[in-house]
């Protein structure tokens, strides 16, 4: 299983209102640029619970699923016990 980690994100909103995440800020102070946006759709997070617009992003060669849920953003993080 996984849990939700709410994160700070930097986003771009264009003239049409379309939102695009640019950078994700981790709680330890590191931040990662979103290299590519692979998919956008409304989805429930089956791994971590929660629901929202799901932005599947490529970040440092890895696929990250970033959710926007009612104005807050979260990522799915693996539970410590599972690692």
């Amino acid at each position: 299983m996984a849990h939700r980690v709410y994160v700070r994100v930097q986003v771009d909103v264009d003239e049409s209102g379309k939102t695009r995440p640019l950078r994700i800020f981790w709680e330890d102070g590191r931040s990662f640029a979103v290299d590519r946006l692979l998919d956008v759709r409304r989805a429930a997070s089956t791994k971590a619970g929660g629901q929202g617009m799901r932005y599947t992003c490529r970040v440092r060669g890895r696929e990250i699923r970033l959710f926007e849920d009612d104005g807050r953003w979260f990522v799915e993080a693996r539970d410590a016990a599972a690692e």
Partner: peptide, 12 residues
Amino acid sequence: ELRRRAREELGL
């Protein structure tokens, strides 16, 4: 399709 979309998009 409504059933599939409710499951996938809303988790319901």
